[in-house]
Amino acid sequence: MKTALVTGGNRGIGLEVCRQLARRGYRVVLGARDVDRGEAAARALAGEGEIVARRVDVTDFASLPGVAAEMEREFGGVDVLVNNAGVLLDEEMPVLELPIETAKATFETNVFGALAACQAFVPGMMRRRWGRVVNVSSGASLLAYMQGYAPSYSMSKTALNAVTRQVAHAARGRNVLVNSVDPGWVRTDMGGSSAPRSVEKGAETIIQLATLDDGGPTGGFFKDGQQIPW
């Protein structure tokens, strides 16, 4: 049985990804900063498959190698990493008034947290010569269309796409496929109730990339099952 870790898995798109991977026969580690909320979310998915909650705070960089070692001992390693944890702190802030501390906090989770998770888990995938990494990005990352929306969030997702390219290159030739996904505007706590997409729709392409066959694409950006320009 393959093991999938989903960061930020206790709600929204992350929770739906946990559900769908469990239904496909993966052992799912539902990662959450608050372990009580993670365990409650895992209980809510009882009957979907094997889902266990673990405390995974991607901004606690020093803890992640220990989490990876624990999962090596317990499960034989993590085969699928979904970097879903993310924050949106500056939706209404113009860039010239954006507090630098807000930008730093955004990058800490959305970029450095994802990078730290890759550094903790991808080397094991490379040793085993099998792995899938999905970085949950956003259409707000697209430089060709970027304007004033949520500046630190948008810039962080552009940087996350660069992490995807870098890690895909580092893992080349080891059957570790690393891609970014734009899930679209989804009805979650972050997306709001007026968003047009359900969490099920938002999770679709994430699941597709997390379950790619050998020889699938790597280093790409995807939406609705199709590769799109950066």
Rank of each mutant, 00 (worst) to 15 (best):
175 N>G: 13
60 D>Y: 11
192 G>I: 09
74 E>W: 00
138 S>A: 11
7 T>S: 02
230 W>N: 07
47 G>W: 09
203 A>F: 03
153 Y>D: 07
22 A>V: 08
65 P>G: 01
207 I>E: 10
203 A>L: 03
22 A>Y: 11
16 E>R: 08
24 R>C: 08
156 S>Q: 09
73 R>E: 10
59 T>M: 13
183 P>D: 06
98 L>V: 14
82 V>I: 05
34 D>T: 02
155 M>T: 15
102 T>I: 11
41 A>W: 01
214 D>H: 01
137 S>P: 10
185 W>P: 11
2 K>Q: 14
27 R>H: 10
229 P>E: 03
32 A>G: 05
5 L>E: 01
77 G>M: 07
75 F>A: 13
195 A>C: 01
222 F>E: 01
120 A>N: 02
223 K>N: 13
212 L>H: 06
78 V>L: 04
105 A>V: 05
78 V>F: 06
154 S>C: 10
149 Y>N: 09
208 Q>T: 12
186 V>K: 04
19 R>K: 05
144 A>S: 12
146 M>N: 15
70 E>G: 05
85 A>W: 01
23 R>F: 04
21 L>R: 12
198 S>N: 02
47 G>F: 11
200 E>R: 10
77 G>P: 08
6 V>Y: 00
225 G>L: 04
24 R>E: 11
9 G>H: 00
113 G>T: 05
93 M>H: 14
47 G>H: 13
139 G>Y: 05
146 M>R: 15
44 A>C: 05
13 I>G: 00
